[in-house]
């Protein structure tokens, strides 16, 4: 399984999203997962495609092409830039 975490306001766009998904070959990277989520959840897909959205795997910030492994925790973090 891949456990999904939508941090902060991304959680508001992901209320009806299953937070654990089966680990499979065609969901090999955070980018794959994002594209897959976007098919069923348009608003979430849009929010995840904003510039400066960060992804972390097991509490480490990674690139969108980072290889996922079974039992990973994949977190998406919305941009925070104001002050």
């Amino acid at each position: 399984m891949i456990n999904l975490l939508f941090f902060g306001r991304l959680g508001d766009c992901a209320l009806d999203v299953d937070k654990s998904i089966f680990y499979q070959d065609d969901l090999a990277t955070p980018l794959d997962v994002r594209d897959w989520l976007a098919k069923a959840h348009g608003d979430l897909g849009k929010a995840l495609s904003e510039p400066q959205v960060l992804v972390s795997v097991n509490k480490r910030v990674v690139k969108w092409d980072h290889p996922l492994a079974d039992n990973d925790e994949l977190a998406f973090l919305p941009p925070v830039t104001g002050g």
Partner: peptide, 18 residues
Amino acid sequence: ELQRYDGKRGQWLTMQCA
């Protein structure tokens, strides 16, 4: 180290960057 706070849900997330 990156720290995130979500005041609405009262959650923190701490992550290491590379």
